[in-house]
Structures are given as structure tokens and as C-alpha cells.
């Protein structure tokens, strides 16, 4: 029956859209990371990466975000099995871990500002805050979407037939995680 839907190779419409959007986002973060790499040494007399970065702390928040990918994929799995209880549990855990990460980023930013790195201190500071800030904004949007999903799951239940939005949110969330994997390596570990 579903004539228009299945004729072109069984590609899922929403997932195709999401992957093309994520490919586009790769370019976005690529440009931000490149800006940072260009400006990493231009400290204009302000503090540099080595003075500021607290690798043990960032490692912990990276670990938190990495584990949120696990809880997300478990939520996705529960959704595929139509297990509403597990779905809720893992959605809320993912949102919670996201909030922990954001809290860590807030703490990190305020420490850095305290130590003298502001948005207008140096091109290094500008590009660092812009990159990590845009990543944080992506996490925040993800947390909002996860919360909305959780509320919906309590009110109406997220069945597989009801769109494929848990899957879309999951793709988005994992994407935010892989961007952080790159940032953690390139921006933090390689700079100290």
C-alpha cells in the first residue's frame, strides 16, 4: 500500500534527513575546530591552554558524556522493544548525564574566567569559548529534546509506530558525543 514510501529503496525518510543534517553539522564543527587550531597559540598576553586546562576534570566530564551515549542507545533499544518503563529510565538518565556535563562546563567556564580568560581576552579565548559554547548549546538542545520525549513517554507512550523520534533524538545525541570526542582529543589532550 505504502506506494511512495517503499519505492525508492526502503530508505527511511526521517533518518535520511537526519543523516544529511548531521553531515552538514560536521562542516559546522569542522570550521569551529579549525578556527580554534588556528588561534590556539594567539593568547594576546592572556593565559594559554597549558595554564588553564584541568585534564582530570575534563576527563571526568568527557566520561560522563560518553556514558550518556550508552544510556541513549539503551533507551533506543528499549523503544525498539516497546518497553516503556526502561525507555523512560534511560531517557531520563541520558538527560541527567547531559545536565551533569553542562554543569561541568559551567564550572569550567567560570574557573577560566576567574583565571583571566574571557571572551575578549585573546583570539585563543574567543575561539575556545565559541567552540565549546556551541557544543554546549547543542547538548542543551539535546537535553530539552530528551526531556520532551520523557514527558511524552509518561503521557502517551512512545510506540514504534508513533514516528521515529526516539531514534532521531538518539542520532542527534550520539552526534553531540562524537563531536566532544574530537574536541576532547584535539582541544584538550593535544594542547597541554
Amino acid at each position: 500500500m505504502a506506494v511512495a514510501h517503499t519505492t525508492s529503496g526502503g530508505l527511511d525518510i526521517r533518518k535520511t534527513a537526519m543523516w544529511s543534517f548531521l553531515a552538514s553539522e560536521l562542516m559546522f564543527f569542522g570550521a569551529l575546530i579549525s578556527t580554534f587550531l588556528l588561534y590556539r597559540g594567539r593568547t594576546n598576553g592572556g593565559p594559554d591552554a597549558e595554564e588553564l586546562f584541568d585534564i582530570p576534570f575534563t576527563s571526568v566530564s568527557s566520561f560522563v558524556l560518553l556514558m550518556s551515549s550508552l544510556t541513549m542507545v539503551l533507551a533506543h533499544n528499549a523503544w525498539e522493544r516497546n518497553d516503556q518503563r526502561q525507555l523512560r529510565l534511560w531517557l531520563l538518565s541520558t538527560a541527567g548525564l547531559g545536565l551533569v556535563f553542562l554543569g561541568g562546563q559551567f564550572y569550567e567556564f567560570s574557573t577560566f574566567v576567574h583565571e583571566g580568560l574571557k571572551l575578549d581576552t585573546s583570539p585563543f579565548g574567543s575561539s575556545f569559548y565559541m567552540l565549546t559554547g556551541f557544543h554546549g548549546a547543542h547538548v542543551a538542545v539535546g537535553v530539552l529534546m530528551l526531556s520532551a520525549m520523557s514527558i511524552l513517554s509518561f503521557r502517551v507512550g512512545l510506540t514504534k509506530s508513533r514516528g521515529m523520534n526516539v531514534e532521531l533524538v538518539a542520532l542527534y545525541w550520539h552526534f553531540v558525543d562524537i563531536v566532544w570526542i574530537v574536541i576532547f582529543t584535539v582541544v584538550y589532550l593535544l594542547q597541554v
Binding site: 530508505l11 535520511t16 543523516w19 550508552l70 552526534f175 574530537v182
Partner: peptide, 26 residues
């Protein structure tokens, strides 16, 4: 790490060629 998350958590390994192409091309 990057490829592990993409392939397994995002299931890209199990998706059709078109989606793999778009993402890895990008």
C-alpha cells in the same frame, strides 16, 4: 572512539549505503 560510536551506537554500520555515503563523504 569516534568510529565506534558512529558504527554501533548510531547503527550506521547497519544503514543503507546512501546514509553511509552522506556522512563519511561529509
Amino acid at each position: 572512539k569516534f568510529l565506534t560510536v558512529v558504527a554501533f551506537f548510531m547503527h550506521l554500520k547497519y544503514e543503507p549505503f546512501t546514509m553511509n555515503f552522506m556522512f563519511y563523504f561529509g
